[in-house]
Design a protein around this nucleic acid. Sequence first.
DNA 1: CTGAAAGCGCTAACAC
DNA 2: GTGTTAGCGCTTTCAG
Lengths: 368, 368
Amino acid sequence: MGDSLIWLSVLVSPQCFIQYICMNNIVRSDCMAATIKDVAKLAEVSISTVSRVINESKPVSPEARRRVLKAIEDLGYKPNEIARSLVTKKSNLIGVIVDDIGNSYVAQIVRGIEEIGRMYKYDILLCSSYGNEESELRFMQLLMQKQVEGMIIVSEIETKKITESVKKYKIPFVYLNRFYDILQTPTVTLDNELASIIMVKHLLELGHKNILYISNGNNIERTIEKYKVKGYKETVNNAGLTPIIYNVNGYKIEDAYNAGSEIINIIKNNNITAIYCCQDELAIGLINYLYDNNIKVPDELSVVGYGDIGISSIYRPKLTTIKEPYYDLGAVAIRRILKELKGESIDEQTIKLPVQLIIRESAVQMKN
Amino acid sequence: MGDSLIWLSVLVSPQCFIQYICMNNIVRSDCMAATIKDVAKLAEVSISTVSRVINESKPVSPEARRRVLKAIEDLGYKPNEIARSLVTKKSNLIGVIVDDIGNSYVAQIVRGIEEIGRMYKYDILLCSSYGNEESELRFMQLLMQKQVEGMIIVSEIETKKITESVKKYKIPFVYLNRFYDILQTPTVTLDNELASIIMVKHLLELGHKNILYISNGNNIERTIEKYKVKGYKETVNNAGLTPIIYNVNGYKIEDAYNAGSEIINIIKNNNITAIYCCQDELAIGLINYLYDNNIKVPDELSVVGYGDIGISSIYRPKLTTIKEPYYDLGAVAIRRILKELKGESIDEQTIKLPVQLIIRESAVQMKN
DNA sequence: CTGAAAGCGCTAACAC
DNA sequence: GTGTTAGCGCTTTCAG
């Protein structure tokens, strides 16, 4: 009886030992990640010490540090960011709600956001709303639940609801809108008026006197289109000339193509020699129409666009246009958020980014 | 003395009450989100009950439910997903590492991933590696720390390191590579061989006998280009004709433009009437060169591409090409991950998606 | 310098 | 049906 008891105790002990190893090393590393506890156990220190060497938050003796580092290495330990976030209340997440990541300009913006965010160890949580206001609202809530520290909304719709509801979330956010003019909320926009001024001046310098502006705005007042129109009118007026504006219904290549014959009439009646379109798509559609009707661009007529969409540099003739710095737009937006997160004051409500004139082939010097 | 004691107790009591309210309602709702505790307190139930009504995990009496719902409403309470993730070990996050979100095809893939993921309540954590292998590895680690449940890598580089190191992370992942042929790892690809067969057959049906293939591959063996070449050769051979292949150095518009004169020689020497380019960019560069050298496409020569990049439908002549379903690629990739996450078995290692022939204007019936 | 212990906000046994 | 309690993996006092 005494013997068997001894046997038992000898048997139990190694079993427990094996169990212990399994729970904390073998099994762990096989099906789930090692935790700070495992590291502490292996290094024979407390979890606080492990935490200290990971975060370098407090001095740790060289010996302890060595052991901890070794244990981390051996276990392939990586801190669980979720747990860390819970206690520090820092998710290092920025929520980004876009209209459609498939739009190339949107992708450029996101690229800027992501690249700069990354530099400051922020990750991007991406949502596409596809222009649906309800989705935007739902995503905002969802992102809040995921504890994002800031939010950037890249939208194409004018949504008072969004900008209002965002105010109740007490986190930094920036609203990027390509079409609408929303001044009540922090935003980063492009200097569209300056863009128009630069473009019209360029055309003027090429010797053009009668410059037609093709707009796509009906209800211009709340959109940024009004700034482009303003810049155009101003510059033409200042040159002592008369602005002429034609409104196309829509913003697609076909839309301009379909308006082609009407535009040709205007050209003839007003002796137009240069056309400034409010979007590249319209310029291309128009040039296509002109080409199909034997009017050569730029030989007989100069046509310029706005936006520098991907096709513009490949299209023949290569389009003279205005390049909008979408990457920078994203970069500035997130910088602004990061700044606010650091507690620095945001001086200006709205930041205006400069645009760039890209001179290519579709507009040339007037021959007289 | 007795009086003042009574006074004191009367005074203290309301103060405590006010303090209590402040801590759990006023102050809270002003600077930080309400927690489950606040809801429980307001509704006068335990936190478990609150949890139960939120998750509908267990029956709750109508009365308690009503009170909880009201408290949630009043406090604007939203569960903290981070805390929830920590205990449930479900982050509802899918990590996506892309080469460059600025590439339009990459954006399309991400669009597919995002849209389908969203349907199953998964969020996308996005990283751009810009083709840097080290970044990819670093992001993989970072995403693991963020506890993503699955990972999709959209890369343009051939990275054995990546595919190997991904194996140590025990989570579902899919590797999407546009150029390289990596069979050791789960992937979703396009049926490039079939694409070539379809395209060459189309050209054959148009009456073309001498079809030149423009490839961009030097070291073709490890890339998917070999499948395109295979499909081309096979189909031409089966028609009793002779394949002719020209290799362009590079994959950009200029690269094909610069190879223009050499290609024209081949055309003349071999009586070529149709050219099949392995990428749209090359087709466009070539057509530009031909145009500049007074060879009309498609009147004198048919030229087709591969990829259906954005420009292809706008370019004149509109390019006949192969459309790759990038959106679907992303959608299938995430579906596969979701499936694996649900514990369903993944039958095939590699999924091949069909491509689509887009007939436009750049290739026409032979006139004889 | 180090460890014990509290707690972030939540879920999930476990008792009642 | 409901409340109590023990964690999830981590950081951060607070004592020693």
